[in-house]
């Protein structure tokens, strides 16, 4: 079995988000980059499915050479090899097209993504890859079992869950529950340095969208404190002042 896991390189979750150049650029100064947390979940499940010599896990990233430490981290967690498609990830359409083109010339039984990247929160790439390859895609899954030809997948729906069965190749985007994120051990970190990391060139993709500006949420007014002894006053305030109940 061969599994492809798509990993994106995102700012650490504690990053204070600021912008430069008149709010048109994300300010990368001092920002630490990590493997997108959901992609770690996808990767961990892929490694579990391949345990005991049942298969191999390849990670792919669309990014410039600056993402290589993140790719090495994925190798340290336990991927067998890696591919970097050399281009700045313009938007989800661009990224998905690159990955789909790569997957067309390489046989994978399944392609796993994270549910969303925590920077631009598109939740787009997985389903777009599915469409480019004309294979099923299941978004926001929380459980994945595979018997070698059929996958049984649980996905989240409003107020519940849905169980699907998929035959043949597919793409899925993984959320919490799919696996516990694995932490690299010393042996993993050592071996990651010598695992194969191949760089390939990007294909041309027409522009679909561009980010023209960023905004930060308007600051809230200061908090109105209600003494604990008169906590019941909250209800009146929510009714008459905030008008939300």
């Amino acid at each position: 079995m061969k599994i492809l896991v798509c990993i994106s390189n995102v700012p650490d979750t504690t990053t204070k988000i600021t912008f430069t150049a008149d709010n048109t650029q994300f300010n990368t100064a001092g920002v630490q980059y990590i493997v997108n947390p959901y992609d770690e979940i996808a990767l961990s499940r892929a490694i579990e499915l391949c345990e005991g010599g049942k298969g191999t896990v390849t990670v792919v990233n669309v990014g410039e050479s600056s993402t290589e430490p993140t790719i090495r981290k994925a190798l340290a967690i336990g991927a067998d090899d890696a591919v970097r498609i050399n281009a700045a990830p313009r938007d989800a359409y661009f990224v998905a097209k690159q990955i789909a083109e790569y997957a067309k010339s390489n046989e994978f039984d399944m392609i796993l993504c994270g549910r969303e990247s925590i920077d631009y929160n598109g939740s787009q790439v997985a389903a777009m890859i599915g469409e480019f390859l004309d294979i099923p895609s299941v978004s926001i899954i929380k459980k994945l079992d595979y018997d070698g030809s059929t996958a049984t997948i649980e996905r989240e729906i409003e107020g519940g869950k849905e169980v699907l069965s998929v035959n043949g190749k597919f793409v899925a985007s993984c959320a919490e529950g799919t696996a516990e994120a694995k932490i690299p051990n010393m042996r993993g970190i050592m071996s990651a340095r010598t695992k194969p990391l191949q760089t390939i060139e990007a294909v041309n993709v027409p522009e679909m969208s561009k980010i023209s500006k960023f905004e930060t949420p308007a600051p809230r007014g200061s908090v109105k404190l209600i003494p604990a002894e008169s906590a019941e006053e909250l209800i009146g305030l929510l009714h008459t002042e905030a008008k939300v109940i």
Partner: peptide
């Protein structure tokens, strides 16, 4: 964008 820490004005 950025999990609610910002908004991105995106032009199609």
């Amino acid at each position: 964008a950025f999990s609610g820490k910002a908004f991105a004005i995106t032009t199609l």
